[in-house]
Design a protein around this nucleic acid. Structure first.
Lengths: 236, 236
DNA sequence: GTTCTTTGTCACGGAAATGTAATATACTGC
DNA sequence: GCAGTATATTACATTTCCGTGACAAAGAAC
């Protein structure tokens, strides 16, 4: 699963660092910005999956930034979590209700922060896992997390599942091992080159171990010597 | 019926306390919030069954909060009762268009408040409940809060009941532990990962401890390694 | 109060999955 | 044919993930 990118907007470097480390440990990649302007540029440049926005930015521009993000169609769907001081103390907070997705009150535990981020991300992305992918009588259903060939369930490990999904979504194209690694394992993972081959083999084996299938689906995963692999319905 | 949770949103502590006591006596459990932000956090976290919302929150954000709750799919179905100082036609018209379910004008009698709450809750519940969930000879009756297999009552704890209900309503889909936690425990509750497993086990155990059942219903709760759990009538 | 139930956490063991190295096989250009 | 390179396959150690029993705290029933 490609990790989500989170932008931290806070004027205090200590908080940015602390939150950044927390997010890294939780498997997110993080960006940071010290003020609303920096934040806006970063959002446009990197399109983070979520913005952690300090309410009390100098100049009170936190809420303005949130409003601006919501108004612009390009950024309107990026979830925002507000970092606020204690809720009960703050009366200025009343005017908000802009499309903020959740609030976290300082001080917060890393654990709580991560939990809320995951919840918001799930709510934002989650409900569309995608349609059933089909090739002949091979089916991959992302929702139920099942693979079948002619109605017969196919067993494979999680990595092979992601690999097959990647191929089904990107047919008829050759991908280098590096590219496959980025897409299936994530960007900052180091693997031996041969490791990809092994997983390709496991996937092929899983697809070919089907009793009485009309087609040998393992043949759809084609080796392109010197280039990588390709999923194709056309014989090589 | 398990007791409903009501969130009281009012800036005056005296009113919050008074209403809180009234609700407790009537068999509800209550939460309270002093402003719109607190209220919103509380709603996201605890998913109350109904919100009692003061119309005249400082900053006039009561109506904004109502509007916001209606807009977000997660909170759109939570009934809202407005507390207003005076029943002016303007309020009613505007409020109704925001999807407010009822009005109570201050000062109100505890008795009247409770009566209206019950009415609104009944109306809200009536829409979704009543349907018995069935899979083969496994039945879950939300109304009577009972579960049976081939007419034999099945014993389980409240958490397992909610878990099973969730599964019955969402069959053939994989859910991560995080997702299950959100749906069954509430959005921002912190549990150890293994805790879900333990409850899954308890549910499976409850379903499998049935004498003379034609099917082992615990098998319908399937483990999807690396992904989560799935309730399915198809063998894994 | 006592007792029973429910609940969340922990620790341990086993099973599946993963990544790597070693070896075997296939392909390419000569 | 050969040498050199790329890929396939196998085997294995390690890691990750899940199931399970035990336990203590908190609450409900008595």
């Amino acid at each position: 699963m490609p990790e989500s990118t989170i932008l931290i907007v806070d004027d205090e470097p200590a908080i940015r660092d602390m939150v950044g480390i927390t997010l890294d440990l939780a498997g997110f990649s993080s960006l940071s910005a010290a003020n609303a302007l920096e934040a806006h540029i970063s959002i446009i440049d990197h399109k983070p999956d979520l913005v952690l926005l300090d309410w009390m930015l100098p100049g009170g521009s936190g809420i303005e930034l949130a409003r601006r993000l919501r108004r612009d169609a390009v950024t309107a769907n990026i979830p925002i979590i507000m970092l606020t001081a204690k809720a009960s103390e703050d009366n200025k907070v009343q005017g908000l209700s802009e499309g903020v997705d959740d609030y976290v009150t300082k001080p917060f535990s890393p654990r709580e922060l991560v939990a809320r981020i995951k919840t918001v991300l799930r709510r934002a992305n989650g409900n569309q896992k995608g349609k059933v992918l089909r090739v002949f009588d091979l089916q991959l259903d992302p929702t139920s997390h099942r693979i079948s060939i002619e109605e017969t369930p196919v067993e494979m490990g999680p990595t092979e599942f992601r690999l097959l999904k990647f191929f089904l979504l990107n047919q008829e194209k050759v991908f280098s091992r590096d590219h496959i690694q980025d897409a299936v394992w994530g960007a900052n993972v180091y693997l031996e080159e041969r490791t990809i081959d092994v997983h390709i083999r496991r996937l092929r084996k899983a697809l070919s171990d089907i009793e009485g299938a009309a087609i040998d689906y393992s043949r759809l995963i084609q080796t392109v010597r010197g280039a990588g692999y390709r999923f194709s319905v056309r014989p090589s």
